[in-house]
Computed example of a mutant assay.
Amino acid sequence: MVRENEGKLGITWPVRELSCEQEEIKNEALNFAKSKIEERQKGIFVIGGQAGTGKSVLVTALFNEIQAACKDKSSIFSGTNNYVLVNHPEMLKFYKRVAGESPMLLKKNFDRPTSFINRIHKSVEQVDIVIIDEAHLLLTKKDAYNHFYQENQLQEILKYARIVILIFDNKQVLKAKSYWSKQKLVAILGGDNVKIRHLQEQFRIEANTDVQNWISDFCSEKIDQLPAKQKFDFRIMNDAKRMYELIKTHEKTVGLSRLLATYDFPYRLDGNDYFVKAGNLSLRWDRSKPQESLAWAERADTIDEVGSVYTIQGFDLNYAGIILGPSLGYDEQLDKIVVRSELYEDQAAFNGIKHLGTNIEAAKERLILNALNVLLTRARKGLYIYAVDSKLRKKLLQN
């Protein structure tokens, strides 16, 4: 069981018990896979759910049950060849660690989509079940930088897998090259042999619904009155260094507490340190350490760093301090948040955006707001926000 102060990063085997909703959807996915194997048909099972609805916990339990049945000669899953794919290096570390703690799982059955696709193309291997966590991160166009040379990762996986189970949240799409619309998903999946279910219950944020509603509205460019005081510690900060001190205090007492920032500060993968500068605070961005077996927020040294959306997506924290950079401002006349995409440092996120066939600026704003949503939905026990833009900070403090 997971201890009370642990999030996904602190998980140990066995994983925590599933809720009734998770158990029901897990069983539906299993029965769906069984029926497709018996009928010798292809099938796609989509599990939707917003941040904090327990998608990755469900994936772990589902795959563990499939792999246990794989070793049972009397099971329909006996001898099947199955994989979990995730297009996120930190999440892959998490799954491989879970595999190392489970008697039923092997690390080799967890992989990145590109590695899987490139290997399967060479071997022309047919697989039975592929579960894709964070499927909203699948590439929807060529990406030579990541060694993907086909047109769409989901389409490639569907060529070689009999059953695909997708874990999907369209509010967590962060790049134009993995931009998914409902129309695109439906076009790829088709209407036959497809089942879609949604997780609704929130497990991460230990707060009243007014906090969740405030975050949702904020990520839609609206600023509501602050939620009423409650057990969940929600604060707007006027001092970035003070916010960092609070986070360090929580790290000492309950752990899993980190600073995060919108991608509004320069960063390069060249081995040098780059810094997030917000008010009276200057702290380095997270250092790239792909060889580390532990995820970023698990490592003790990262309390001295600021995490990005790419570092923390998919994971829980106990307390999160969020720095809103210059790309997020406030329009006093319209009384709404202003998104300045030209100030967003992750301009690579917009590569290929002209080919989406939609309003380019609106699409850029949507990607930035999706990234904001990921950051603001990490915390279980407390969330602190500091805005670099003085007008936005003033407005938030007034509320």
Results as ranks from 00 to 15, higher is better:
Val2Leu: 11
Arg3Ser: 13
Ile11Thr: 05
Trp13Asp: 12
Arg16Glu: 01
Glu21Asn: 11
Gln22Leu: 00
Lys26Trp: 01
Glu28Val: 14
Asn31Ile: 10
Phe32Tyr: 02
Lys34Ser: 14
Ser35Lys: 13
Lys36Gln: 13
Ile37Met: 14
Arg40Gly: 08
Ser56Thr: 14
Thr60Cys: 07
Thr60Asn: 02
Leu62Gln: 03
Asn64Thr: 08
Ile66Lys: 11
Cys70Glu: 07
Val84Met: 08
Leu85Trp: 14
Glu90Ile: 10
Tyr95Asp: 10
Ala99Val: 10
Lys107Ser: 15
Phe110Thr: 06
Pro113Ala: 11
Arg119Trp: 12
His121Ile: 09
Val130Asn: 08
Ile131Tyr: 08
His136Phe: 04
Asp143Ser: 10
His147Gly: 04
Tyr149Ala: 09
Gln153Tyr: 07
Gln153Pro: 14
Gln155Met: 13
Leu158Val: 05
Arg162Val: 01
Phe168Lys: 10
Asn170Thr: 09
Lys184Val: 05
Val186Pro: 02
Ala187Glu: 15
Ala187Gln: 15
Leu189Val: 01
Asn193Phe: 08
Asn193Gln: 09
Ile196Val: 07
Asp210Ala: 02
Asp210Phe: 01
Ser220Tyr: 12
Lys222Gly: 03
Gln225Arg: 11
Ala228Lys: 13
Asn238Glu: 15
Ala240Val: 01
Gly255His: 00
Tyr267His: 13
Gly271Pro: 02
Lys277Trp: 04
Leu283Thr: 09
Ser293Ile: 13
Trp296Ile: 12
Ser308Lys: 03
Ile312Tyr: 06
Ala320Trp: 00
Ile322Lys: 01
Leu324Asp: 10
Leu324Pro: 09
Pro326Leu: 07
Gly329Asp: 12
Gln347Glu: 15
Asn351Tyr: 13
Glu361His: 09
Ala362Pro: 02
Ile368Lys: 13
Asn370Gln: 08
Ala371Val: 12
Tyr384His: 00
Lys394Asn: 12
